[in-house]
Design a protein around this nucleic acid. Structure first.
Lengths: 136, 136
DNA sequence: ATAGAGTCTGAAGCAGCTACAGGGTCAAGA
DNA sequence: TCTTGACCCTGTAGCTGCTTCAGACTCTAT
């Protein structure tokens, strides 16, 4: 199949597919006489795997590790488990950080309802000691 | 004050300060005879503002807009309010996306406890139709 | 023959810094 | 006075994960 077909089959932009090839995440396919990339079912499956892992927030280097592990069927899958656990930990960390941020913004978002910027409490909160602005 | 002093005072790396100057977020300071940057209290305050806004997740272009608004004291601060509201909306969107992701990862993280990768349910979930791998 | 859709390469751009390399400056101690 | 070491300078390249270009080629249909 051509890159366009693979693109539609995996909801991945053509440029992204070429990018994955360039960084060695997706193997380079055979070429047609006209130098077009020619993908097979293995490419389709591997790209599906990559996209799914990326959707789950795994970094490209982690996807690479997952692909490598998937290629060693005899190996114990503890490493795979660990990568997922690490990913969950990371996501939790991000959620907590965003929630802290959310709380702070909430306290900020009291709103000044039409008042002038000179009295804006939001800008005051962002810019401490703004009151002595004129004295400098 | 030198860039190093400003750096410590605002917990901002020296390179970041120079970066902010390059992109026009922080005004270029005066220079000493030895060509060292020489900052004053206004720089300190503005950099504090920038850092605080960045900590709250505002994009650089939004910080630029906030700074510009802060410089028009006569203006009504509805625009400032709106930027904060937009930011909260954006944060909420991210939190929701991460929580969905978290749920998906949880379902994945059943763990294969020592089994071989050939039976790994995680990789199965990531790589649909992996069973017909040998038939291709 | 030709139009239009698809494909090719290589390079540059995005955010928001961070990290060099290869120099110059300055204050303190021997 | 000299030297050491901390600091500072510029300019450029690197990071992640793509995306977007420019300019050329190929293939299919009419």
């Amino acid at each position: 199949m051509t890159i366009g077909v693979l693109s539609r089959a995996t909801a991945t932009k053509v440029e992204t597919i070429r990018f994955y090839e360039r960084i060695g995440l997706l193997p380079a396919p055979a070429r047609t006489g006209g130098n077009y990339r020619s993908y097979d079912e293995n490419h389709l499956r591997q790209l599906g795997f990559i996209r799914r892992a990326r959707e789950l927030g795994f970094k490209i280097e982690t996807v690479r590790a997952l692909l490598s592990l998937a290629d060693q069927p005899q190996r114990c899958c503890d490493d795979v488990d660990q990568l997922v656990i690490d990913q969950i930990t990371e996501i939790d960390r991000k959620i907590e950080a965003l929630q802290r941020l959310r709380t702070e913004l909430d306290q900020l978002a009291i709103g000044c309802r039409g008042g002038p910027i000179a009295d804006c409490r939001i800008l005051d909160a962002l810019q401490p000691h703004r009151s002595d602005r004129n004295t400098i």
